[in-house]
Write a protein that binds this DNA or RNA. Structure first.
Lengths: 364, 364
DNA sequence: ATTAGCACTCTGGGCAATAGAGTGCTAATT
DNA sequence: AATTAGCACTCTATTGCCCAGAGTGCTAAT
């Protein structure tokens, strides 16, 4: 009985420390806790509790005579158990919705816009990882001749992603031939995942009785080049400079490392592609990250999907001392929003615009 | 007679100071000058010269008892008159050429790759501004139906730039109609600058006797949306984190400002679009920039063109204390390289690949 | 189990002293 | 008239030191 309330108090103290530290960026001492959160105990008691919490690994000391700051383990516990989940305010939600309502953009623009808004609203760094075309399903494939021996292939996937690619041929194709090929391909292309398309198309084509053997060869070339899987998802990243405003990163070395990672989007892509399997919001705190350079950061990400397939990720990067509850709400909201957008694009129904994007989610 | 050699000596000292400061980032004193560059005069004389140079505005003092550092005016004089123009080393040129030889990429990839290489080779921040489609001439326009009432327009310009745009219609078009429209447009589209295309196309279409009035309306819609000039040139920017490695930017405030500008690519775009009229390499030093936040930086840019039209810009951003001669050589080389690439793409001749891109320029 | 009291530790700011770098000026030299 | 030597002067940067403040940890009392 007493045990439980003891534990409760301990948790309360931990919560206070983390909460306070998140707000102020200054180590928290026993006095502060009592003054600002009116606990009905003496500083000495709090000190005892703090010492225990430290022994258990939730808090630490920068130096002997300073207040406590959370460890990664501390943050983790806070995020998992202590934190009250927050909702975005109505204003915030409206602000976001408005941006999306205003125009029906191409998917790329949506993604870019989203990363911008994530960064603006979080005051941290926002990102969106678009699907690698490979995981997506093809909807249309258009071939356009641009040169004697070069062709532009435009892929439109079911989710609305558009990619183009220049294809070099070693023989000339005339426009009518190309048109024929194009038609043929489009008949066979629909609904196949880009991954499997190489094999699948060729297989199907052989079933149709294609007279000219020339076509087959040509198409092999085409298909090979167009769907070479070198293409990764793209990473939109905005607000990198926000990192510099965080007092946490006064240390030059730290900042440089972080920026190196951000600069080389590659690393981040890999990291995120790992996460893409998970569903729902995920929080990566400090050393939990596989990427050494980001050990001083936390990442809040979520995924988005179309139908049953997880397509990409989005989220924010900030200091470990982060407003987790707010960030989780934010990332979650955006992820849901993108989901709606995608599924709207996928199923072209007569579309009463506002209803899908508007109030519905805000007012729960 | 004596006058001239006096002036010469003065310039020599100025050159030494700037050169040394560029290398070491430390203010240069009279002793250093004599020791390291074996002038045949005493420190006192050098001090007199330094004082004069300062009075004339080429040098300055951080504080009473430190060596001299160049002012913007000093750098300017150095760049205009003092600096020996440098060539890239053969290794460097080969390294660059190799990258370009290896694949015939889509233009976008070329641009991105270029900004990466600029950043790598300079150790500063590299950028490429692609042409706003508006200044370019159209080569093909392809329309692809993606939805009940949405169409994807793909523009291919003469220089090889590819842009796509989603177009929302308020009526449905069936595929055969679209094909007809598409064919009609392409007959009329070739060689018109994207800027004029709206008017021009409609004019020409009226000359052809288009039977269905429906088409005309539709095309108006299409053309309007497809060529809405909101599209700016894109800015590829790489190596922003290199800025952080420069000792010049130890001051947090400065760095933050610079990053803010880099983050908001918009500002840089505007700045560069100003420069696009100039031909050849241009150097912008410190306060010469119209952009307050970049007063601590210098920019070396050049343009690239296809035929007679200047299309875009490229270059690097670094500290004022910059290896100008090397950077000028670098930027110049890349600008010429892109010019070659563009003009190759424009005139599709039977193409012995290596010759165009390879040795030819390197050895001159 | 809690608390009061107190000694202890560490930071950070202020202050003074000092060495070093480099100038600027004056007077002597060529 | 230009150059140079010599020297006083100024400013930085480092060091050591002191002291106040914050906060802890321990012990003994409640």
């Amino acid at each position: 009985m007493a045990r439980i309330s003891l534990q409760e108090r301990k948790q309360k103290v931990l919560q206070i420390v983390i909460h306070h530290y998140i707000r102020t960026a200054k180590p928290v001492g026993s006095e502060t806790i009592i003054e600002q959160y009116k606990l009905e105990v003496s500083p000495a008691t709090v000190r005892n509790i703090l010492a225990e919490l430290e022994k258990e690994g939730f808090l630490t000391h920068p130096h002997t005579s300073s207040g406590r700051i959370p460890t990664d383990k501390g943050y983790r516990f806070y995020v998992d158990s202590l934190m009250n989940l927050q909702q975005l305010t109505q204003e915030e939600e409206q602000r976001i919705d408005k941006e999306y309502e205003s125009q029906r953009m191409a998917l790329d623009s949506v993604m870019q816009e989203t990363s911008k808004m994530l960064s603006m609203l979080s005051h941290y760094t926002g990102f969106v990882l678009t699907p690698a075309p490979a995981v997506d399903r093809l909807k249309r494939l258009e071939l356009v001749k641009v040169d004697r021996d070069r062709i532009l292939a435009v892929l439109v996937t079911e989710t609305g992603l558009i990619r183009h690619k220049i294809i070099n041929l070693d023989q000339e194709v005339n426009s009518t031939e190309l048109l024929a090929i194009n038609r043929l391909l489009n008949k066979n292309v629909f609904g196949i995942s880009v991954n499997d398309i190489g094999l699948e198309i060729l297989k199907r084509l052989q079933q149709e009785k294609v007279k000219q053997v020339k076509y087959i060869n040509l198409m092999e070339k085409l298909v090979q080049q167009a769907f070479a899987l070198d293409e990764e998802g793209e990473l939109y990243l905005e607000g990198a400079s926000n990192i510099l405003s965080q007092p946490d990163f006064a240390d030059y070395e730290k900042v440089r490392n972080i920026f190196k990672v951000i600069d080389e989007k590659k690393m981040l892509c890999d990291l995120l592609e790992e996460e893409v399997r998970h569903d729902g919001v995920k929080v990566i705190i400090g050393e939990e990250t596989p990427c050494k350079e980001l050990q001083e950061c936390s990442i809040v990400t979520s995924t988005y999907r179309a139908g049953d397939k997880t397509l990409g990720a989005l989220g924010i990067i900030g200091p470990k001392r982060m407003e987790y509850s707010k960030m989780i709400a934010l990332v979650d909201y955006f992820s849901k929003l993108i989901n709606k957008t995608l599924n709207r694009t996928t199923n072209p129904e007569p579309r009463p615009d506002q209803q899908v994007l508007g109030r519905k989610i805000s007012r729960k």
